[in-house]
Amino acid sequence: MGDFNHPDICWRDYTARHKLSRRLLQCTDNFLSQVVEEPTRKGVLLDLALTNREGLVGDTKVGGSLGCSDHKMVEFRMLQERSKATSRIATPVFGRADFGLFRDLIGGISWVKALEGRRVQESWLVFKHHFLQAQERCIPMSKKCTKRGRRPAWVNKELLAKFRQKKKVHRMWKRGQATWENYRNAVRVCRDAARKAKAQLELSLARHVKDNRKGFFKCISSKRKTRENVGLLLKGAGALVTRDTEKAVLLNSGNSEILNPGSPHESRSLEVREKVQRREDFPLVEEDRIRDLLGRLDIHKSMGPDRMHLRVLRELADVVAKLLSIISERSRRTGEVPEDWRKAKVTPVFKNGKKEDPGN
Protein backbone atom coordinates (compact mmCIF):
# COMPACT_ATOMS: atom_id res chain seq x y z
CA MET A 1 0.00 0.00 0.00
CA GLY A 2 1.44 3.40 -0.96
CA ASP A 3 1.84 6.26 -3.44
CA PHE A 4 3.54 4.71 -6.48
CA ASN A 5 3.20 7.88 -8.59
CA HIS A 6 2.53 6.29 -11.99
CA PRO A 7 -0.26 8.42 -13.49
CA ASP A 8 0.22 7.03 -17.02
CA ILE A 9 -0.96 3.51 -16.07
CA CYS A 10 -4.46 2.50 -17.12
CA TRP A 11 -5.39 -0.25 -14.67
CA ARG A 12 -8.53 -1.22 -16.59
CA ASP A 13 -6.65 -2.12 -19.79
CA TYR A 14 -3.25 -2.82 -18.15
CA THR A 15 -1.44 -0.38 -20.44
CA ALA A 16 1.24 2.26 -19.78
CA ARG A 17 3.33 4.74 -21.76
CA HIS A 18 6.58 4.88 -19.79
CA LYS A 19 9.10 2.08 -19.36
CA LEU A 20 9.08 2.07 -15.54
CA SER A 21 5.30 1.92 -15.51
CA ARG A 22 5.34 -1.07 -17.86
CA ARG A 23 7.78 -2.83 -15.51
CA LEU A 24 5.36 -2.30 -12.64
CA LEU A 25 2.58 -3.82 -14.75
CA GLN A 26 4.73 -6.85 -15.48
CA CYS A 27 5.27 -7.40 -11.74
CA THR A 28 1.56 -7.20 -10.99
CA ASP A 29 0.73 -9.53 -13.88
CA ASN A 30 3.02 -12.23 -12.50
CA PHE A 31 2.09 -12.49 -8.82
CA LEU A 32 0.24 -9.34 -7.61
CA SER A 33 -3.18 -7.79 -8.11
CA GLN A 34 -4.22 -4.15 -7.60
CA VAL A 35 -7.53 -3.57 -5.73
CA VAL A 36 -7.99 0.24 -5.81
CA GLU A 37 -10.25 1.25 -8.70
CA GLU A 38 -11.13 4.94 -8.09
CA PRO A 39 -8.77 7.91 -8.61
CA THR A 40 -6.99 9.17 -5.50
CA ARG A 41 -5.54 12.55 -6.62
CA LYS A 42 -6.91 15.01 -9.20
CA GLY A 43 -8.67 12.32 -11.22
CA VAL A 44 -5.61 10.06 -11.39
CA LEU A 45 -5.03 6.73 -9.63
CA LEU A 46 -1.72 7.13 -7.77
CA ASP A 47 -2.23 5.33 -4.44
CA LEU A 48 -2.26 1.56 -4.94
CA ALA A 49 -3.03 -1.45 -2.77
CA LEU A 50 -1.31 -4.63 -4.01
CA THR A 51 -2.07 -8.14 -2.79
CA ASN A 52 -0.71 -11.57 -3.70
CA ARG A 53 -3.93 -13.49 -3.16
CA GLU A 54 -7.51 -13.07 -4.32
CA GLY A 55 -9.95 -12.33 -1.51
CA LEU A 56 -7.31 -11.14 0.97
CA VAL A 57 -8.36 -7.46 0.73
CA GLY A 58 -11.99 -6.34 0.45
CA ASP A 59 -14.40 -3.44 0.95
CA THR A 60 -12.05 -0.90 -0.65
CA LYS A 61 -13.32 2.70 -0.35
CA VAL A 62 -11.81 5.97 -1.59
CA GLY A 63 -12.93 9.31 -0.15
CA GLY A 64 -12.03 12.21 2.11
CA SER A 65 -8.56 13.45 2.93
CA LEU A 66 -6.28 13.53 5.94
CA GLY A 67 -5.17 16.99 7.07
CA CYS A 68 -3.78 19.19 4.28
CA SER A 69 -2.97 16.31 1.96
CA ASP A 70 -4.35 16.49 -1.59
CA HIS A 71 -4.56 12.69 -1.77
CA LYS A 72 -7.78 10.91 -0.93
CA MET A 73 -7.85 8.33 1.81
CA VAL A 74 -8.06 4.64 0.89
CA GLU A 75 -9.84 2.34 3.34
CA PHE A 76 -9.94 -1.46 3.06
CA ARG A 77 -10.45 -4.54 5.17
CA MET A 78 -8.12 -7.50 5.64
CA LEU A 79 -10.08 -10.73 5.22
CA GLN A 80 -7.36 -13.10 6.48
CA GLU A 81 -8.57 -15.94 8.67
CA ARG A 82 -7.24 -15.99 12.20
CA SER A 83 -6.99 -19.73 12.71
CA LYS A 84 -4.94 -21.99 10.46
CA ALA A 85 -6.16 -25.43 9.52
CA THR A 86 -3.97 -28.22 10.83
CA SER A 87 -2.80 -30.85 8.41
CA ARG A 88 -4.05 -34.39 8.90
CA ILE A 89 -2.01 -35.93 6.09
CA ALA A 90 -0.13 -39.09 7.03
CA THR A 91 3.34 -39.49 5.53
CA PRO A 92 5.49 -42.64 5.38
CA VAL A 93 8.46 -42.94 7.75
CA PHE A 94 11.12 -44.62 5.61
CA GLY A 95 13.68 -44.60 8.42
CA ARG A 96 11.71 -47.35 10.18
CA ALA A 97 10.60 -49.20 7.03
CA ASP A 98 11.27 -52.95 6.65
CA PHE A 99 12.11 -53.28 2.94
CA GLY A 100 13.38 -56.82 3.45
CA LEU A 101 9.94 -58.01 4.55
CA PHE A 102 8.43 -55.96 1.72
CA ARG A 103 10.54 -57.85 -0.85
CA ASP A 104 9.60 -61.20 0.66
CA LEU A 105 5.87 -60.41 0.56
CA ILE A 106 5.90 -59.23 -3.06
CA GLY A 107 8.46 -61.73 -4.33
CA GLY A 108 6.71 -64.70 -2.71
CA ILE A 109 3.70 -64.40 -5.04
CA SER A 110 3.63 -66.35 -8.30
CA TRP A 111 2.63 -63.44 -10.51
CA VAL A 112 2.54 -65.42 -13.75
CA LYS A 113 -0.21 -67.65 -12.36
CA ALA A 114 -1.93 -64.77 -10.55
CA LEU A 115 -2.22 -62.72 -13.76
CA GLU A 116 -2.98 -65.59 -16.12
CA GLY A 117 -6.12 -64.97 -18.17
CA ARG A 118 -6.67 -61.47 -16.79
CA ARG A 119 -6.98 -58.24 -18.72
CA VAL A 120 -4.68 -55.27 -18.20
CA GLN A 121 -6.95 -53.41 -15.79
CA GLU A 122 -7.60 -56.54 -13.71
CA SER A 123 -3.88 -57.38 -13.61
CA TRP A 124 -3.01 -53.90 -12.41
CA LEU A 125 -5.66 -53.97 -9.69
CA VAL A 126 -4.35 -57.32 -8.40
CA PHE A 127 -0.80 -55.99 -8.22
CA LYS A 128 -1.96 -52.72 -6.62
CA HIS A 129 -3.97 -54.57 -3.96
CA HIS A 130 -1.03 -56.72 -2.84
CA PHE A 131 1.41 -53.82 -3.08
CA LEU A 132 -0.65 -51.48 -0.89
CA GLN A 133 -1.26 -54.24 1.66
CA ALA A 134 2.48 -54.89 1.95
CA GLN A 135 3.20 -51.15 2.07
CA GLU A 136 0.78 -50.67 4.95
CA ARG A 137 2.36 -53.55 6.83
CA CYS A 138 6.05 -52.73 6.28
CA ILE A 139 6.15 -48.90 6.27
CA PRO A 140 4.86 -47.01 9.33
CA MET A 141 2.96 -43.76 8.83
CA SER A 142 3.24 -40.51 10.75
CA LYS A 143 0.96 -37.47 10.78
CA LYS A 144 2.41 -34.15 9.74
CA CYS A 145 2.91 -31.74 12.60
CA THR A 146 1.65 -28.18 12.48
CA LYS A 147 3.89 -25.32 11.44
CA ARG A 148 3.95 -23.95 14.97
CA GLY A 149 5.39 -27.09 16.54
CA ARG A 150 7.84 -27.90 13.76
CA ARG A 151 11.53 -27.13 14.30
CA PRO A 152 13.18 -25.19 11.44
CA ALA A 153 15.54 -27.18 9.25
CA TRP A 154 18.48 -24.87 9.99
CA VAL A 155 18.34 -25.44 13.78
CA ASN A 156 20.95 -27.95 15.00
CA LYS A 157 22.11 -29.11 18.42
CA GLU A 158 24.85 -26.49 18.74
CA LEU A 159 22.42 -23.70 17.93
CA LEU A 160 19.91 -25.01 20.47
CA ALA A 161 22.60 -24.99 23.13
CA LYS A 162 23.34 -21.34 22.37
CA PHE A 163 19.64 -20.47 22.57
CA ARG A 164 19.40 -22.14 25.98
CA GLN A 165 22.49 -20.27 27.16
CA LYS A 166 20.93 -16.97 26.05
CA LYS A 167 17.75 -17.71 28.04
CA LYS A 168 19.86 -18.65 31.04
CA VAL A 169 21.80 -15.36 30.87
CA HIS A 170 18.53 -13.47 30.50
CA ARG A 171 17.14 -15.04 33.69
CA MET A 172 20.37 -14.25 35.51
CA TRP A 173 20.26 -10.63 34.33
CA LYS A 174 16.66 -10.23 35.58
CA ARG A 175 17.77 -11.52 38.98
CA GLY A 176 20.77 -9.20 39.06
CA GLN A 177 23.32 -12.04 38.73
CA ALA A 178 24.64 -10.93 35.30
CA THR A 179 25.33 -7.60 33.62
CA TRP A 180 23.56 -6.17 30.59
CA GLU A 181 26.76 -6.52 28.53
CA ASN A 182 26.79 -10.29 29.17
CA TYR A 183 23.22 -10.66 27.98
CA ARG A 184 23.85 -8.46 24.94
CA ASN A 185 26.88 -10.54 23.96
CA ALA A 186 24.81 -13.75 24.26
CA VAL A 187 22.14 -12.23 22.01
CA ARG A 188 24.72 -11.28 19.39
CA VAL A 189 26.24 -14.75 19.44
CA CYS A 190 22.83 -16.38 18.89
CA ARG A 191 21.88 -13.93 16.15
CA ASP A 192 25.12 -14.43 14.23
CA ALA A 193 24.93 -18.21 14.57
CA ALA A 194 21.29 -18.26 13.38
CA ARG A 195 22.11 -16.11 10.35
CA LYS A 196 25.03 -18.34 9.41
CA ALA A 197 22.91 -21.48 9.81
CA LYS A 198 20.15 -20.06 7.59
CA ALA A 199 22.63 -18.95 4.95
CA GLN A 200 24.36 -22.34 5.00
CA LEU A 201 21.05 -24.16 4.57
CA GLU A 202 19.96 -21.97 1.65
CA LEU A 203 23.37 -22.35 0.00
CA SER A 204 23.21 -26.12 0.37
CA LEU A 205 19.70 -26.25 -1.09
CA ALA A 206 20.75 -24.07 -4.03
CA ARG A 207 23.77 -26.26 -4.77
CA HIS A 208 21.83 -29.53 -4.64
CA VAL A 209 18.59 -28.28 -6.21
CA LYS A 210 18.77 -30.91 -8.97
CA ASP A 211 18.94 -33.74 -6.44
CA ASN A 212 16.54 -32.29 -3.86
CA ARG A 213 14.00 -30.11 -5.63
CA LYS A 214 11.33 -30.87 -3.06
CA GLY A 215 13.42 -29.44 -0.22
CA PHE A 216 14.30 -26.37 -2.28
CA PHE A 217 10.71 -25.46 -3.12
CA LYS A 218 9.61 -26.32 0.42
CA CYS A 219 12.04 -23.67 1.69
CA ILE A 220 10.73 -21.16 -0.86
CA SER A 221 7.08 -21.77 0.02
CA SER A 222 7.80 -21.48 3.75
CA LYS A 223 8.87 -17.86 3.23
CA ARG A 224 5.46 -16.95 1.83
CA LYS A 225 3.02 -15.60 4.35
CA THR A 226 -0.04 -16.53 2.30
CA ARG A 227 -0.86 -19.18 -0.28
CA GLU A 228 -2.08 -18.04 -3.67
CA ASN A 229 -5.40 -19.51 -4.74
CA VAL A 230 -7.00 -19.65 -8.15
CA GLY A 231 -9.09 -16.50 -8.64
CA LEU A 232 -12.16 -15.92 -10.77
CA LEU A 233 -12.10 -17.56 -14.21
CA LEU A 234 -13.96 -16.74 -17.43
CA LYS A 235 -15.86 -19.31 -19.43
CA GLY A 236 -16.11 -19.25 -23.19
CA ALA A 237 -19.39 -17.29 -23.05
CA GLY A 238 -17.85 -14.62 -20.79
CA ALA A 239 -19.47 -15.78 -17.52
CA LEU A 240 -17.39 -15.71 -14.33
CA VAL A 241 -16.73 -18.97 -12.50
CA THR A 242 -16.61 -18.57 -8.70
CA ARG A 243 -17.03 -22.05 -7.19
CA ASP A 244 -13.95 -24.22 -6.71
CA THR A 245 -15.57 -27.31 -8.28
CA GLU A 246 -16.48 -25.34 -11.41
CA LYS A 247 -12.94 -23.94 -11.62
CA ALA A 248 -11.51 -27.45 -11.39
CA VAL A 249 -13.79 -28.69 -14.18
CA LEU A 250 -12.89 -25.72 -16.39
CA LEU A 251 -9.14 -26.14 -15.88
CA ASN A 252 -9.40 -29.91 -16.30
CA SER A 253 -11.16 -29.55 -19.64
CA GLY A 254 -8.48 -27.13 -20.84
CA ASN A 255 -5.66 -29.47 -19.82
CA SER A 256 -7.41 -32.42 -21.48
CA GLU A 257 -7.59 -30.54 -24.77
CA ILE A 258 -3.87 -29.74 -24.59
CA LEU A 259 -2.66 -33.19 -23.53
CA ASN A 260 -5.15 -35.26 -25.57
CA PRO A 261 -5.82 -33.41 -28.83
CA GLY A 262 -8.50 -34.91 -31.03
CA SER A 263 -7.25 -37.14 -33.83
CA PRO A 264 -8.99 -37.29 -37.21
CA HIS A 265 -8.39 -41.03 -37.44
CA GLU A 266 -10.60 -43.33 -35.42
CA SER A 267 -8.86 -45.70 -33.04
CA ARG A 268 -8.74 -49.33 -34.00
CA SER A 269 -10.93 -51.81 -32.20
CA LEU A 270 -9.53 -54.10 -29.55
CA GLU A 271 -9.82 -57.19 -31.76
CA VAL A 272 -7.94 -55.57 -34.63
CA ARG A 273 -5.12 -54.41 -32.36
CA GLU A 274 -4.77 -57.88 -30.84
CA LYS A 275 -4.65 -59.44 -34.30
CA VAL A 276 -1.89 -57.08 -35.43
CA GLN A 277 0.15 -57.36 -32.24
CA ARG A 278 0.09 -61.19 -32.23
CA ARG A 279 2.25 -61.13 -35.35
CA GLU A 280 5.19 -59.90 -33.28
CA ASP A 281 7.18 -62.72 -31.75
CA PHE A 282 9.28 -60.67 -29.29
CA PRO A 283 8.25 -58.25 -26.53
CA LEU A 284 9.14 -54.57 -26.85
CA VAL A 285 8.79 -53.88 -23.10
CA GLU A 286 11.78 -55.67 -21.61
CA GLU A 287 12.34 -56.38 -17.92
CA ASP A 288 15.82 -54.83 -17.91
CA ARG A 289 14.42 -51.60 -19.33
CA ILE A 290 11.74 -51.42 -16.61
CA ARG A 291 14.34 -52.13 -13.92
CA ASP A 292 16.58 -49.36 -15.26
CA LEU A 293 13.71 -46.84 -15.25
CA LEU A 294 12.68 -47.78 -11.71
CA GLY A 295 16.27 -47.37 -10.50
CA ARG A 296 16.34 -43.78 -11.79
CA LEU A 297 13.14 -42.57 -10.13
CA ASP A 298 13.34 -39.30 -8.19
CA ILE A 299 12.54 -40.31 -4.60
CA HIS A 300 11.97 -36.69 -3.55
CA LYS A 301 8.78 -36.40 -5.58
CA SER A 302 5.36 -37.08 -4.11
CA MET A 303 3.36 -40.19 -4.90
CA GLY A 304 0.54 -40.07 -7.43
CA PRO A 305 -3.12 -41.06 -7.22
CA ASP A 306 -2.15 -44.75 -7.07
CA ARG A 307 -0.59 -44.16 -3.57
CA MET A 308 2.66 -45.93 -4.54
CA HIS A 309 5.63 -43.96 -3.31
CA LEU A 310 8.53 -43.59 -5.73
CA ARG A 311 11.10 -44.53 -3.09
CA VAL A 312 9.33 -47.83 -2.49
CA LEU A 313 9.28 -48.61 -6.23
CA ARG A 314 12.96 -47.76 -6.45
CA GLU A 315 13.85 -50.00 -3.49
CA LEU A 316 11.85 -52.91 -4.97
CA ALA A 317 12.98 -52.45 -8.57
CA ASP A 318 14.39 -56.00 -8.79
CA VAL A 319 11.14 -57.51 -7.48
CA VAL A 320 8.47 -55.58 -9.40
CA ALA A 321 10.34 -55.09 -12.70
CA LYS A 322 9.21 -58.42 -14.16
CA LEU A 323 5.60 -57.89 -13.09
CA LEU A 324 5.41 -54.37 -14.51
CA SER A 325 6.99 -55.54 -17.76
CA ILE A 326 4.23 -58.15 -18.13
CA ILE A 327 1.48 -55.59 -17.56
CA SER A 328 3.14 -53.02 -19.84
CA GLU A 329 3.61 -55.56 -22.63
CA ARG A 330 -0.05 -56.61 -22.42
CA SER A 331 -1.04 -52.95 -22.50
CA ARG A 332 1.07 -52.41 -25.62
CA ARG A 333 -0.35 -55.43 -27.40
CA THR A 334 -4.02 -54.80 -26.58
CA GLY A 335 -4.07 -51.01 -26.43
CA GLU A 336 -5.74 -51.07 -23.00
CA VAL A 337 -4.28 -48.69 -20.39
CA PRO A 338 -5.01 -49.08 -16.64
CA GLU A 339 -7.18 -46.34 -15.20
CA ASP A 340 -4.55 -45.23 -12.67
CA TRP A 341 -2.06 -44.64 -15.48
CA ARG A 342 -4.42 -42.13 -17.07
CA LYS A 343 -4.78 -40.03 -13.89
CA ALA A 344 -2.49 -37.20 -12.79
CA LYS A 345 -2.42 -34.42 -10.21
CA VAL A 346 -2.09 -31.10 -12.05
CA THR A 347 -1.43 -27.82 -10.19
CA PRO A 348 -2.40 -24.65 -12.11
CA VAL A 349 0.41 -22.06 -12.12
CA PHE A 350 -0.27 -18.52 -13.34
CA LYS A 351 2.18 -17.36 -16.03
CA ASN A 352 1.24 -13.96 -17.44
CA GLY A 353 -1.64 -12.03 -18.98
CA LYS A 354 -5.08 -11.82 -17.41
CA LYS A 355 -5.74 -14.06 -14.44
CA GLU A 356 -9.35 -14.60 -15.54
CA ASP A 357 -8.22 -16.48 -18.65
CA PRO A 358 -7.87 -20.23 -17.89
CA GLY A 359 -5.25 -20.51 -20.65
CA ASN A 360 -2.86 -18.27 -18.71
Rank of each mutant, 00 (worst) to 15 (best):
G2C: 11
A16P: 01
K19N: 01
L24E: 01
L25A: 09
C27Y: 00
C27T: 01
L32R: 05
R41C: 02
V44T: 11
V44H: 15
L46R: 12
L48P: 00
A49K: 11
L50G: 00
T51Y: 12
L56T: 10
G64A: 01
G67Y: 02
M78K: 05
L79T: 03
R82N: 07
S83H: 05
S87L: 08
A90L: 15
A90I: 14
P92Q: 11
D98A: 04
D104P: 05
I106E: 02
E116V: 03
V120Y: 00
E122C: 01
K128W: 01
Q133M: 10
Q133E: 12
Q133P: 04
Q133Y: 08
A134D: 04
E136D: 13
E136M: 12
P140M: 05
M141S: 12
K143I: 15
K144R: 15
K147L: 14
G149L: 15
R151Y: 07
L159D: 08
A161N: 10
Q165E: 15
Q165V: 10
N185W: 14
A193R: 08
K196N: 12
S204T: 10
L205M: 04
K214M: 06
F216A: 07
N229D: 10
A239I: 08
R243L: 04
T245C: 12
K247I: 05
V249G: 06
S253M: 03
S256P: 00
I258C: 04
L259G: 03
S267Q: 09
V272T: 12
K275E: 11
V276T: 13
E280K: 11
L284G: 00
E287F: 02
I290G: 00
D298Y: 00
I299R: 08
H300Y: 08
H300W: 08
M303S: 14
H309F: 07
V312L: 09
I327N: 00
R332L: 13
T334C: 03
E336F: 06
E339C: 10
E339T: 10
W341N: 11
V349S: 04
F350M: 08
K354V: 15
K354Y: 06
D357P: 02
